[in-house]
Write a protein that binds this DNA or RNA. Structure first.
Lengths: 160, 160
DNA sequence: CGGCTTGTTGCATATTTATTTAATACGCGG
DNA sequence: CCGCGTATTAAATAAATATGCAACAAGCCG
């Protein structure tokens, strides 16, 4: 529907540019933009957008967008060869490499937990991670080898 | 405090291994582990841990860990040199490069906002971004140089 | 130790968010 | 245009979560 879509866009815009701490706040901003709706509808909108309420640095709550993740298509591309363990560790399913990226697949909703653990270790071979729902993308340092990454990750996922 | 810390650890453990959808659920799990506390206390614990309630693919709610923010500054490894500004602009903390990727760290919850702005500019040097809670991963165009990226981003993050 | 400051907790309650329900609007094939 | 299935909504309410407050425990000087 037309109205709803533009409303969702506006929600995205607002959340991207302002620090919104409650649905009431967001409702107020939306009404400034000419949208009138109830908190119930907003709650459903946010659910659909998969917006989450996080805790910011100063302990303030804040609604933030998550990205609509791609639900990818398993590899086909030559280089990438999945290495899959016998036992699933904390939702881990597989890891593949390509260039300076590694992509870990997990069971649904386990990705951010895994990314959390990887981040916590702060491996020098890894310059950053991003988690979707069931995928963790890992940016590797330029000189990191596949072996070094696997070795590092083994501290978190023994049977990787 | 002793008890509280081990409780926080246990919360992390539980959230890492189970799909918890409400504080009541988590409370139940904690009591199995011998912790007795009220929802009020748990709410405060989760706030302190910056745990967030997300929406999974099937629309289920789930509590997940976010990363411990280290205001780090690694900068040791040869190629990678975090470039950190004097003033924090919109939560920006650092940027690192590796191959055709750049990884920006932000203060917690600022990543999606920053990514949104980067996207909005539609720089030819940048073919796409992904944002987590405090990390933006940027896919660079094939011919983009580090300098060109920094120059482009400067329109958004002046002191980058 | 005695006072002071800080941190932790439960209780009760406020606040916030999700959901049920019933009504209304919409899209579309016939 | 009609009828039927699907969306969308508001209102009320349920459910979930956050917080003010008072009590108590811990650490910390002097």
């Amino acid at each position: 529907m037309k109205i709803k879509n533009s409303r969702l866009d506006t929600i995205r815009l607002i959340l991207s540019t302002q620090e919104i701490g409650s649905q009431e706040d967001l409702l107020r901003e939306l009404s400034k933009e000419g949208f009138k709706l109830t908190q119930a509808t907003l709650s459903r909108d946010l659910h659909q957008l998969r917006v989450v309420k996080t805790v910011g640095v100063q302990g303030k709550y804040r609604y933030v967008l998550t990205r609509p993740h791609q639900y990818r298509h398993e590899g086909t591309e030559g280089e990438m060869r999945p290495i899959t363990p016998q036992h699933e560790i904390g939702g881990f399913i597989s890891i593949k490499f390509s260039g300076n990226l590694a992509v870990i697949r997990t069971k649904p909703s386990y990705a951010s937990t895994l990314a959390y653990h990887i981040d916590a270790y702060d491996f020098p071979e890894i310059i950053g991670t991003i988690a979707g729902d069931d995928t963790v993308m890992i940016a590797l340092a330029e000189d990191a080898t596949k072996g070094a990454i696997l070795k590092a990750l083994r501290t978190i996922i023994p049977n990787i």
